[in-house]
Write a protein that binds this DNA or RNA. Structure first.
Length: 288
DNA sequence: GCGACAG
DNA sequence: ATCTTGTCGC
């Protein structure tokens, strides 16, 4: 598995190679999400510009019944880029993988898959446990994603092939990793109690190895950033997010993208909404 | 052997 | 990730 990760890292592109619609420059206005999705009354329905809701599982053990609503997804090349957020909720021996798609700051589709789990969680090998299930869910999505936001690291990984990079390379889809804690690497400065909008580079240290075929030094290479997406004035301190390139995105642009996708909460909206959706589906299954 | 260790 | 009540602060 580790060798496969080395190959994935070698195939990964850690420079900007995003499709048109991202504005060309660093800050992607077209993907910004200004209004936080209201989750106080359960998971909101996708917008009506794209009416599509599917339930599927490419790996069996699906508890949902196939059901459609209609098919009017109009993905013109002139539309803003589609950003998908992915998150999971765990059952006994299965996992609910939720995918939500945003376009122009609006939720346009949501879908999920329930897949069996066989591999345990092992730091550094997360993609082998959750990657398949995520692909199951993405396979049921009707719109074509332009960018995927994964829950976990991308380049900030022992072999520079975290789950965000793994998924991105497998689908050759631009992707970014958003983790709530640091797997490896070293922050340039102390990350505690920083103001909103603050960020500092995370550099490769002795625990990070170079991609296959490369023997040059990696120590000191910027593999991601600690990014303070949210901070309260007089309340409890919020820890920063650890964002890193998945595939076809640079470390600097990754920060801009995550920043643009945050709408008042610590987590970017795609991730936050996917998390709520995954939990909702899980509850539906448990309460039966 | 010991410590570190995404979700 | 998940198990779980209250509780601090705006």
């Amino acid at each position: 598995m580790e060798d496969l990760q080395r190959e994935i890292a070698a195939a990964a592109v850690f420079t900007d190679d995003l499709p048109d619609g991202f504005g060309g420059s660093a800050v992607p206005d077209s993907i910004a999400i200004d209004e936080a999705t209201d989750l106080t009354d359960g998971v909101p329905e996708p917008g009506h510009d794209t009416v599509q809701e599917r339930f599927g599982s490419a790996t069996g053990s699906c508890t949902s019944s196939p059901s459609f609503t209609s098919t009017s997804s109009s993905t013109s090349s002139s539309d803003p880029p589609i950003v998908v957020g992915i998150d999971q909720a765990f059952l006994e021996d299965a996992v609910v993988s939720a995918v939500v798609a945003f376009r122009g700051g609006r939720l346009v589709e949501r879908t999920h898959a329930v897949s069996p789990l066989s591999i345990p969680y092992i730091p550094g090998l997360l993609a082998f446990r959750e990657g398949g299930p995520i692909l199951d869910a993405l396979a049921t999505l009707s719109v074509d994603p332009d960018l995927a936001v994964l829950d976990g690291s991308g380049r900030i990984h022992f072999r520079q092939a975290g789950i965000a990079t793994h998924i991105g390379v497998v689908l050759d889809l631009p992707s970014v990793g958003v983790a709530k804690s640091l797997l490896c690497g070293t922050p340039d400065t102390d990350v505690d109690g920083r103001p909103e909008g603050w960020s500092t580079p995370i550099r490769a240290d002795g625990r990070v190895e170079a991609p296959a075929g490369r023997t040059d030094a990696v120590d000191g290479t910027v593999i991601g950033h600690a990014f303070q997406s949210r901070q309260y004035p007089n309340s409890r301190r919020v820890n920063p997010l650890y964002v890193s390139p998945g595939h076809r995105v640079s470390a600097a642009t990754t920060v801009d993208i995550v920043d643009a996708l945050c709408a008042g909460y610590k987590l970017p909206e795609p991730t936050r909404v996917a998390d709520a959706y995954a939990d909702a589906v899980k509850r539906t299954i448990v309460d039966s």
